[in-house]
Amino acid sequence: MRILVVEDEEAIAEGLKFNFEQEGYEVVVATDGHEALAAVSQTDAEEFALIVLDLMLPGLSGYEVLRELRQKQVMTPVLVLSARTLSEDKILAFDLGGDQYMTKPFALREILSRVKSLIHRHQSIRLSTPAAPADPAPAAEQSSSTQGSSPGRFQFGRVIVNFQTFQVSVGERVHSLTTLELELLKYFIEHQGEVLSRTRILNHVWDEHAEVTTRTIDNFVLRLRKLIEPDPSKPVHILSVRGTGYRFLPFPSSQDVTDEEFAE
């Protein structure tokens, strides 16, 4: 497996390269933003199992690199490694498609653990398909070809979630998801109909050492709503539960949507 390390501080870059190689990974090092994008464009992006990305880079910042990678539909997991500690920096990194965020200085064991976890998640999620939803609609109104799940995908209404390609299709529109975006949507699908607290979601979807808050979950939910909801300002699938968290309904009824408990 190959890891791309994007880091302009030579000592850190070489230290990461050495330790990753000791774990059996092949490592490519880029020392600025332009070099990082070139490394990805010159090879099949899927050949990289993970990208470790610094934010303060010469040329193009890590933010710009991350934005361009996601715009080009490169969905390789990205672990942001930065000396920036403000919550605004972390939120922006997540909004641009980062999967995890670590601050410098860092513990070697922790970063190795996170690398293994992200790579494992990205690979295993492709092989899993949540159980088909219990559709409350009359059988005459549904067909097995348009609802439920099949190997590697899950469908509800006009939405098709493809766990092998990390994509969500809504009608003719196709959107790529990051590892954590897909992991969060998968968790909602697996627990459809349940009221899920933000703390529960955080504990099950994010790494136990991830430097995120419950506000991070809200930002991820907003992005998912923009993709799967007919009207993101009036969600019918990912409903807010006041003071608690969220509830996912693949086939919502009018009562579910208008219930005051789930009002925005």
Rank of each mutant, 00 (worst) to 15 (best):
Leu37Tyr: 04
Val52His: 01
Val221Tyr: 01
Gly157Val: 02
Ser113Thr: 15
Glu141His: 11
Val170Asn: 01
Pro133Ile: 08
Tyr246Lys: 07
Leu227Gly: 04
Glu21His: 00
Gly171Arg: 01
Phe20Asn: 01
Ala38Gly: 07
Ser124Thr: 08
Gly148Pro: 05
His34Tyr: 06
Ile217Pro: 02
Val29Leu: 09
Val212Tyr: 03
Glu172Trp: 03
Lys17His: 02
Leu118Gln: 02
Val6Pro: 04
Arg200Thr: 13
Gln255Val: 11
Ser149Asn: 10
Leu79Tyr: 00
Glu47Trp: 00
His122Asn: 11
Asn162Ala: 07
Gly157Thr: 05
Ser145Phe: 11
Ser87Thr: 14
Ser87Tyr: 14
Ala38Val: 14
Pro77Ile: 09
Glu14His: 10
Ser87Leu: 15
Glu47Leu: 13
Met1Ser: 09
Phe166Thr: 01
Leu227Arg: 04
Glu7Met: 10
Gly59Arg: 08
Gln73Ser: 15
Glu264Asn: 14
Gly33Asn: 07
Val28Thr: 12
Phe48Asn: 04
Val6Lys: 02
Arg126Cys: 12
Arg70Gly: 01
Leu86Ile: 09
Leu182Val: 03
Phe154Thr: 04
Ala36Met: 12
Leu66Gly: 04
Arg2Phe: 04
Ile91Pro: 00
Ala107Thr: 09
Gln100His: 11
Lys72Met: 07
Thr244Gly: 06
Phe166Tyr: 14
Ala83Pro: 09
Phe220Asn: 02
Arg126Asn: 09
Val6Phe: 06
Arg126Gln: 15
Trp206Glu: 09
Leu79Thr: 04
Ser144Leu: 14
Leu57Ile: 12
Pro133Gly: 05
Leu16Pro: 05
Arg153Pro: 00
Pro252Glu: 12
Glu7Ile: 06
Leu177Tyr: 05
Val161Glu: 05
Thr179Ser: 12
Thr165Arg: 09
Phe166Asn: 09
Phe220Met: 12
Gln71Trp: 02
Ile111Ala: 10
Phe154Leu: 13
Leu227Gln: 07
Glu190Gln: 13
Ser145Asp: 14
Thr179Trp: 03
Gly24Cys: 11
Phe20Val: 03
Ile160Pro: 00
Glu7Asp: 12
Phe188Lys: 03
Glu68Asn: 07
Leu53Phe: 08
Leu222Arg: 13
Ile91Cys: 04
Asp135Val: 12
Phe163Arg: 07
His209Ser: 13
Leu112Ile: 13
Thr244Asp: 11
Ile12Lys: 08
Phe166Ser: 06
Glu208Pro: 02
Gln155Pro: 01
Asp231Ser: 06
Val168Ala: 00
Thr178Ala: 05
Ala11Ser: 06
Ser254Leu: 10
Ser145Val: 15
Asp54Pro: 00
Gly15Ser: 10
Ser128Ile: 11
Val159Asn: 02
Phe251Ile: 09
Leu112Trp: 04
Phe220Val: 06
Glu64Met: 09
Thr43Trp: 02
Val174Tyr: 00
Glu183Ile: 03
Glu64Val: 08
Lys234Glu: 07
Phe188Asp: 01
Gly62Ile: 03
Arg242Tyr: 05
Ser254Met: 08
Asn203Met: 03
Ser117Gln: 03
Glu23His: 09
Phe166Asp: 00
Ser87Trp: 12
Arg242Glu: 07
Gln71Leu: 15
Leu177Lys: 06
Glu64His: 03
Arg198Thr: 13
Val28Asn: 00
Arg242Ala: 10
Glu7Arg: 10
Glu211Phe: 08
Gly97Glu: 01
Lys17Gln: 14
Gly62Phe: 02
Gly33Ile: 06
Pro138Leu: 14
His237Ser: 06
Glu7Leu: 13
Leu222Met: 13
Ser128Asn: 10
Ile125His: 03
Gly193Thr: 14
